[in-house]
Computed example of a mutant assay.
Amino acid sequence: MTLADPRHATAWQIQSLLMSYPDQRLMDRLPLLRAAARTLPAPLAAPLKAFLDHLEATPLTELAADYVATFDHRKRFSPYLTYFAYGDTRKRGMALLRFKHAYRAAGLELDDSELPDHLAVVLEFAATGDPVTGRRLMIEHRAGLELMRMGLREAGSPWANVLRSVSATLPPLGRREHEAVARLAAEGPPEEEVGLAPFAPPEYMPQPQGGPR
């Protein structure tokens, strides 16, 4: 599939909704999401169908609690893409600005309550804003995406299926990407460099919070 393939936008839109905090609006959209997933090729659709089956079979309160326990309380599954590349260091502020600038260039402004590197936000941008730039942002942070996907799979998390579908929209991993994933798995995100002043205004520095609600 190419960048012009509209099925990418459909997949990213579904994935964005599924990577957001589960609420009643999401449950009400399940028939529409199933219908949209059926239009996708098997590598994208099969893992989405598996996750939609899980949503349908699980009480909403349980889904919400699992989401919080998975993404809000465990950094190894952080949905914030710049965390894997920069950890909680001050350099992450500049990386967040790059996301903001990319969205602004496409005519989109985020609510101040949302960090621009949350995977659900990036997927929404790729689906409805600028697919070329959205895809590039995901490729630039591919090591973190793959580490999250593998971690979720090893933990038996149902959200691993959503990450499988995301990965299926991106190019196959090459040797350098495999090495980057292995290095990140072994070393983890960087730690703060003592003595450096912030590189971005405080409002762009990451604060502990949950995903898009």
Score class of each variant (00 low, 15 high):
7 R>W: 05
8 H>M: 07
8 H>P: 09
9 A>E: 13
13 Q>S: 12
13 Q>K: 09
14 I>H: 14
14 I>P: 00
15 Q>V: 02
21 Y>I: 11
23 D>P: 11
23 D>N: 15
23 D>M: 08
25 R>G: 11
30 L>S: 09
30 L>K: 06
34 R>C: 09
42 A>Y: 03
43 P>W: 06
47 P>C: 00
47 P>D: 06
48 L>C: 11
49 K>A: 14
50 A>V: 04
51 F>M: 03
51 F>L: 11
52 L>V: 08
57 A>K: 10
58 T>G: 10
60 L>P: 07
60 L>Y: 08
61 T>E: 11
61 T>Q: 06
64 A>Y: 05
65 A>Y: 08
67 Y>F: 13
67 Y>I: 01
69 A>M: 11
69 A>P: 02
69 A>Y: 08
71 F>S: 01
75 K>I: 05
77 F>N: 14
78 S>C: 09
81 L>A: 08
88 D>L: 04
89 T>G: 07
89 T>H: 03
90 R>C: 03
93 G>P: 04
97 L>M: 12
97 L>W: 03
97 L>V: 09
99 F>A: 04
99 F>H: 12
100 K>N: 13
100 K>A: 14
103 Y>A: 03
103 Y>E: 01
103 Y>K: 00
110 L>Q: 10
110 L>E: 06
111 D>Q: 14
112 D>F: 15
120 A>F: 08
120 A>T: 13
124 E>G: 13
125 F>C: 07
125 F>V: 11
129 G>N: 10
129 G>H: 01
131 P>V: 03
132 V>L: 12
132 V>R: 13
132 V>Q: 07
133 T>P: 04
139 I>R: 12
140 E>V: 09
141 H>A: 12
142 R>K: 03
143 A>M: 00
143 A>N: 03
144 G>L: 04
144 G>A: 05
145 L>K: 12
147 L>E: 02
148 M>D: 00
148 M>I: 10
148 M>Y: 03
151 G>M: 13
151 G>W: 12
152 L>R: 13
155 A>Q: 05
156 G>K: 00
156 G>F: 08
157 S>N: 05
159 W>K: 05
162 V>K: 01
164 R>C: 14
167 S>H: 05
168 A>I: 10
174 G>E: 13
175 R>I: 14
179 E>F: 05
179 E>H: 10
183 R>Y: 08
184 L>N: 01
186 A>R: 12
188 G>I: 10
188 G>D: 02
189 P>C: 02
191 E>K: 15
192 E>W: 06
195 G>N: 04
196 L>C: 03
196 L>S: 06
199 F>T: 11
199 F>P: 00
200 A>Q: 03
204 Y>E: 04
205 M>H: 14
207 Q>Y: 01
207 Q>F: 06
212 P>L: 14
213 R>Y: 11
